[in-house]
Write a protein that binds this DNA or RNA. Structure first.
Lengths: 201, 201, 201, 201
DNA sequence: AATGAATGAGTTTTCATTCAT
DNA sequence: AATGAATGAAAACTCATTCAT
């Protein structure tokens, strides 16, 4: 990918994630990378194409990340606190707090409101997929008889919803700062700790 | 408030909550209520004033609702399941699922990303206030010795975060439908039920 | 019709008939009537709407003219040279050489090449309708036994095609000048004269 | 002439003759021959140069054709129906219905309206030259005493104008199809037949 | 209370062209 | 012989707003 094209994607995502797709003008994007407005059309067919490419990159990245998580699930025979920390590290650092993904998630949360296709991706990547993955994790723990409780769905929501709350509160609202990232990690890990203590594994 | 002014507010909120403030044009609003663009300026100083008035109405409504909730907290000496249901009913029906408030919450979730003032209101009404209220509830229950557990903050997050997850998933994403409202209630009340069962009150 | 709207139509037709629809810019039109480009959109939805309105006006005008001609055909019981001159006067002065219609005919001749709908109108108003009308005229003359020859179609083409040639040569090519109008009339009336001499009415 | 250059000319004429010079973009042309826009400037100085070259080729072709016609006029001492058919065949097939010339004639009919130079060529090749040639033909026939009538100009217009009408109607309007070509030939030859029958040669 | 008419600034996009490679 | 990258100028159109009526 050419230098200019990459710059366009970067700047566009930056602006889209703050203001929403329609509000950002080609002028805004070009202004930040010092090219003329007409030049952008050499690299992208139109404004929509920039958006589409960003979403494509995101989905590839997220799918890769999810594959990694699911592999780590099948590989770990003796599931312990460490495996869990590993999973969290990937999910937090390579997804929720990753610069690119974080911005896309913000963008999705704006665009989902009046775009059915985006609404589906938003629903999938923020609600369905993470909850489902946790369900799988707890199913495995139940099968391995690490946990007595056998309602994997209920465990998943109990485990994931505070993380989701902290995600929305600290990672997906306002401007993302290091302070907020710390706040998120602190709260999230505290919750995970308490959760496993209660489960008594 | 004149009929036309009310119509403008209604239609504006409808559109703002779907597309965001900047994307909606005066033309869009006027088109739906069959008045000319210039007429809108008889009722509002400018586009921003429509937005501001909507936010003001919301805050008054929300404060009233919160007062009601907090009163119900001080009045009920013998706190029981019923008091809880009452609180939920108010919070769910007169706030989260109320047509006006629901749309404002959607609007806030868009605008908070690049508007610091709105970001504060969003943070307050979606994260801080509800969590704090729950903390108070549990503090009271602890004081009344209904509950042994004494970490009101932890209880609050355990109680509120699934409701928040369901709120975001079913009430604040995509288009709000009766099906989604039911889905939300079902999940939320199931969670509340399990929560109190576990607490063993 | 407001003054400005009429001016827009006038100037637009002027330019369209010289350069073709697509070549003329909104800027060109507005420049000539001293209004800003954005103002034109108060009077017309878009550029196409200007074109469409012009065509509508033309068709109404042409239909009116044709009705007049056909009435003059049914009214005149004793058909003579004078009736013919009357018909020609209407057709030449109120149609071919009329400022508005002449420009529309030029416009049609450009646009017909890549616009099927316009091609149909062009075909109708320049080829089919006039030839058909002449056929009717000669049919009547045959019925009235003013003419012995009984092939009204052949007579029509013999009568109309030189007029068509002169129309295209003097009225619809280059810039229309008084010199060319005279040239057209001279040639056309000479042809008509010779034609009726040969027919021996 | 290089393959690519020829392709550019072909495609350009195709598009120009449908939409007019200004409407067709370099992008349109290049799109159809799968080269990049910048490549076209290796073969032509600019867009205008493509147009100019097309006109040059046309004039050379037309002059050659006319020379052929005029030769056939001087060679045939005993002028008969056959000589006439020969002339028509050349004029119809190698000119009016020839793919290249037909498209140029369409292009001229668009461009003549706002381009004086083109207007002259249009006037010359569609009105003056053919009429003049016919005048010469009839002058010869008068000299050879094949015809008694001695107004060669009037004979020329009587002979040529129906052909011109059919040319404009069937060959130069809308899209050129085999059906229209047949229609033209049918009508044109019928006219020629009747014309000579009436002349009684 | 509403509107007809206008506008400056801005929107996305297209266009012919250039130039280094 | 062709192209990647860029651009100034212009295209059609939108927008929030103004102001006289």
């Amino acid at each position: 990918m050419s230098n200019t094209k990459q710059k366009i994607l970067d700047v566009a995502l930056n602006l889209f994630s703050k203001n929403g797709f329609s509000v950002v003008s080609i002028r805004d994007i070009c202004g930040q990378i010092q090219i003329k407005e007409s030049s952008i059309y050499y690299h992208f067919k139109n404004k929509q194409a920039i958006f589409d490419e960003l979403i494509n990159i995101f989905e590839k990245k997220s799918e890769d990340m999810m594959k990694k998580l699911e592999e780590s699930l099948t590989l770990n025979i003796d599931f312990n606190n460490n495996s869990f920390k590993n999973i969290c590290d990937i999910y937090f650092n390579q997804y929720l707090m990753d610069d690119f993904c974080n911005k896309i998630l913000r963008l999705l949360s704006i665009e989902q409101l009046n775009n059915d296709e985006i609404q589906k991706k938003y629903e999938f990547w923020l609600f369905e997929k993470p909850l489902n993955f946790q369900k799988k994790v707890f199913s495995k723990l139940i099968n391995l008889q690490v946990i007595k409780n056998n309602d994997s769905e209920y465990l998943a929501i109990k485990y994931y919803s505070p993380i989701f709350y902290y995600t929305e509160r600290w990672l997906l609202s306002g401007t993302l700062t290091d302070y907020k990232k710390e706040k998120f990690c602190l709260n999230a890990y505290k919750h995970i700790h308490s959760f496993f203590k209660e489960l008594d594994i």
